[in-house]
Design a protein around this nucleic acid. Structure first.
Length: 324
DNA sequence: CGTTGGCCCTGATCGC
DNA sequence: TGCGATCAGGGCCAAC
């Protein structure tokens, strides 16, 4: 269940390897992972092979790889580009990229960088072969058990606020399919006052609001439960009755838990491969309530309760987190 | 338009 | 040993 910290670990791992890298080959093993791509597998492959990746950008749980503009689009000659190395040293285009590969990990997606001769990772749905300026030939394997994740090529459109699109972005351009996603709390352009005002206007439970990616992005079930526990708020507390002070505290705790998880999950690029996934040491050591049902609350000792909510589990302390 | 419930999807695990 | 039941939940969308 990758959330903001896990996706950011992936982005940080990808960035040095894919920036400036040329896509030499794409293999689609399971077209269901292209569910969000507006076209058949062949279209995805054709539009990607021969292109150069300009960056690795993240907003909330969405990751995207802007595709550099190149003379290929003008000449239509991709084969020469693939054969030569001129593409790796070509002067960058003064214009911003117009499209990107959008990646969402869903519930179980992983992006793995491997040596060219490495065996396929289990459950690899899409394999992208790259030649990276920094690391030479590489495989980028997209593996996904439950196929809630996806890859797609999408147009880049201007951001609503005119600021750069997310972490790792130079351009104020976001994929069309991500444009309705709010900024995340670790984004410097996240507007606290605007978020608090929007939250107060909502007429729903606080956890549902926290999980609504069009209000605030990057928070999933795990970190929602952890932040609510830290702020001593019941997950069904109506947003309208939360109060400005509690809402401010909650936002602060969200940042705290996301930042701590990110710090514990940081994995950097290795010469041969980068192996990043959601199961960092954080999960087994730092969780206070998620998956801790029956165990004592670290704050008061009362057993943690798990309740079903929105087809998910909600974990909380019945004493520390009471409805007000 | 805001809110809500339900659905998608499959490998790992468990009980019998 | 086999097999069916259960479980995990992010994002989307129809329905209210």
């Amino acid at each position: 269940m990758p959330e903001l910290p896990e996706v950011e670990v992936v982005r940080v791992g990808l960035e040095p390897a894919v920036t400036g890298a040329l896509v030499t080959s794409v293999t689609v093993f399971d077209a269901r992972s292209l569910r969000r791509h507006p076209g058949p597998s062949e279209d995805f492959v054709d539009r990607l092979v021969g292109r150069t990746i300009a960056a690795a950008v993240r907003r909330g749980k969405f990751l995207w790889l802007p595709l550099a503009l190149s003379e290929i689009q003008e000449t239509g000659d991709r084969v020469d580009r693939i054969r030569g190395v001129s593409g790796l040293t070509a002067a960058p285009s003064p214009e911003f990229p117009k499209e990107a590969v959008v990646v969402h990990l869903g519930m179980s997606g992983q992006v793995l960088l491997r040596a060219p001769d490495a065996p396929d990772d289990a459950l690899t749905r899409i394999r992208i072969e790259l030649v990276s300026p920094a690391h030479g030939a590489l495989l980028l394997n997209f593996a996904d058990q439950r196929i809630f994740g996806s890859m797609a090529i999408d147009d880049l459109v201007p951001t609503a606020d005119g600021f750069r699109a997310g972490l790792g972005a130079e351009a104020p351009h976001v994929p069309r399919s991500v444009s309705h996603i709010a900024r995340d709390p670790l984004d410097p352009a996240f507007d606290d006052a605007r978020f608090l005002a929007a939250l107060a206007k909502r007429n729903t439970g606080i956890k549902r609001a926290m999980l609504d990616q069009s209000l605030v992005s990057g928070i999933g079930n795990i970190y929602a439960d952890e932040a609510l526990w830290a702020a001593k708020v019941h997950f069904e507390q109506p947003t309208s009755s939360l109060g400005r002070a509690k809402a401010t505290l909650l936002l602060s705790e969200v940042r705290q838990v996301l930042g701590k998880a990110l710090g514990e999950g940081g994995t950097s690029f290795d010469a041969q491969y980068v192996n990043v996934n959601g199961a960092s040491g954080y999960f087994s050591h730092s969780l206070n309530v998620y998956g801790q049902q029956g165990k004592p609350c670290p704050r008061c000792g009362r057993p943690i309760i798990r309740e079903s909510f929105m087809n998910r589990g909600s974990h909380f302390c019945p004493l520390c987190q009471r409805l007000r």
